[in-house]
Amino acid sequence: MASIQEPEVQFAQRLASNEKPIRTKAIKKLRKYINVRSHNPTGGFTGDELLKLWKGLFYCLWMQDKPLLQEELSNQISNLIHSFRDIDGQLLYLESFLQTFKREWTGIDRLRMDKFFQLVRFMFRQTFEMLKRKNWESCAVGRFVELLTAQLLQSSSGAPSGLQFHILDLYMTELAAVGSAELTADQNLIFIQPFCKTAAKTKDRSLFSAICNSIFSTIIDQAPFAIEDLMKEVKAEASDSDSGQASEEDDKEDQLKGKMSKPVAKKGTQKQINGNISNEEEGDDDDDNDDDELLHLEESDSEESCDEDVEPVLQFDYAALADKLFELASRSSTPSQNRQRLYKIIRVLRDLNEGIFPQDEYPEEVSTDEDDEMFGSRKRMKRRGRRMDEEEDEGVP
Rank of each mutant, 00 (worst) to 15 (best):
L349I: 06
S330G: 04
R339K: 12
L183V: 06
D317E: 05
D284W: 06
D284E: 14
L152G: 04
D48Y: 03
K235N: 14
P363V: 13
L349T: 05
V120R: 00
Q13E: 15
Q90P: 01
E298D: 10
E49Q: 14
E174C: 09
A320E: 02
S3I: 09
F101R: 05
L314Q: 10
E233I: 12
E95L: 08
R331P: 01
A236T: 12
T24H: 06
C196Q: 14
A223Q: 15
A150P: 00
L80P: 03
G244P: 04
S336W: 04
L131W: 00
D292Q: 11
D204K: 12
T184P: 11
E19C: 05
E293G: 03
L163Y: 07
W105R: 05
Q76E: 15
A322S: 07
Q90Y: 05
D86K: 11
S336V: 04
K32H: 13
R125Q: 10
D291T: 07
Q337D: 12
N75F: 06
F101I: 03
D240P: 02
H166W: 10
F45S: 01
V9F: 07
I27W: 11
K262R: 14
V36D: 15
T269E: 14
M63L: 07
L256P: 01
E253C: 08
Y33V: 03
V366H: 03
L256N: 09
L98W: 01
L314C: 07
D288P: 01
Y362D: 09
A140F: 03
Q270W: 10
I22S: 08
L349Y: 08
E182I: 04
G244S: 12
Q255C: 08
G158S: 01
T127L: 00
L119N: 00
S305K: 14
A319T: 04
M1G: 13
G179L: 06
A236D: 11
N35Q: 14
P160W: 06
D309I: 05
A140Y: 03
G275N: 13
C60K: 09
L15D: 01
D393H: 11
R350L: 10
